[in-house]
Amino acid sequence: MRILIMENDVQMSDALSNLLSEHNYQCDVAESVGDAKYYLDIRNYDLVLLGWPAGTPSSSLNVIGEIKKNAHKTSVIVISERLDKESEIDALRSGADDFIRKPIDEEILLVRIEAKLRFGASNIIEIEELIINPEEEKIIYQGNEIELKGKPFEVLTHLAMHKDQIVSKEQLLDAIWEEPELVTPNVIEVAINQIRQKMDKPLDITTIETVRRRGYRFCFPKKIG
């Protein structure tokens, strides 16, 4: 599970990142809205922790709407030192899924995150007869399960989540590999080839097209020719 921490308090963001990493969550930290938008453009997040400092206007919660618009299945938990009931109401009405007050009880935070991820909206992708279930790493086409696991599955899923968009090799590396700087772009070509060999050819469909010099695009499953 991947979590984006939007918190301009460096000490707090470091503490949250360390806590979540210890519990096997993959974390990115954004200290500004600009940084957050960059991460949200290249990666899929299951949950966003949004810091809302005292003294900042309610309009700063508008970012929640932007997150939900582009990734409606992503849960958002607002964390804030604000104690008044009105602030919690503002956050929830702005689209937040939960509101947690500082100082944060680590056990409560972890339980709240587990609850949102467990009961949050499904990430299952359904396009006609093709079903991709990221949580179970399962693909079903016309009722039959397709054997595609690991990085090829993650590449297919990422492209499917960004259907009709061109995604570059660099974006795929950043989104999927833990340390993208340590691998070469050739691993993307290998993953794409695995998808075509294990899925497209046997099923006589096309799921991914290569856009020369730009990257790859998930295209609607269709019969070849």
Rank of each mutant, 00 (worst) to 15 (best):
E137S: 08
G150P: 04
R112N: 11
T157G: 12
K116R: 11
S122R: 10
R118A: 15
S168F: 01
I124E: 05
A115E: 14
N133C: 08
F153R: 04
I127D: 12
L110D: 05
E136V: 14
Q165L: 05
A175P: 00
E114C: 06
R112P: 05
N123M: 10
I139S: 08
E135M: 09
E135N: 06
L159K: 00
K138C: 14
A115G: 09
L130W: 02
E137Y: 02
I132P: 09
G150A: 06
L172S: 04
I176C: 04
K116H: 12
E136P: 08
I113H: 07
F153M: 03
I139N: 11
K138G: 13
I113Q: 07
K138M: 13
E145P: 08
L159W: 00
V111H: 11
E135Y: 08
I113D: 03
E137K: 07
I113P: 03
Y141P: 04
N144C: 12
R112W: 05
G120N: 08
R118N: 15
P134D: 13
D174R: 15
I166P: 10
E147P: 04
E170Y: 02
I127Q: 12
K169I: 01
H158Y: 02
L117M: 15
I125W: 00
S168V: 01
R118G: 13
N144E: 12
Y141V: 04
E128F: 03
I146M: 14
L156T: 08
W177G: 14
I146K: 13
Q142E: 11
I127P: 07
I127M: 15
I127H: 11
E126Y: 00
E154N: 12
L130H: 02
E170H: 05
L148R: 04
L156E: 06
A115F: 15
L109K: 00
S168D: 05
E114V: 04
L156N: 04
N133Y: 07
K169S: 03
L172G: 00
Q165S: 15
I146S: 11
F153P: 00
E126V: 03
A160S: 06
W177S: 15
I139K: 01
G120K: 10
I113L: 05
N133K: 09
T157L: 02
L109S: 01
L110K: 02
I127T: 07
P152E: 07
A121P: 03
E137M: 06
E128T: 11
L148Q: 10
K138N: 12
E145C: 14
I127V: 11
I132V: 09
V155D: 06
Q171A: 10
K116F: 11
L110P: 05
F153I: 02
I124K: 14
K163E: 09
I131T: 08
I131E: 05
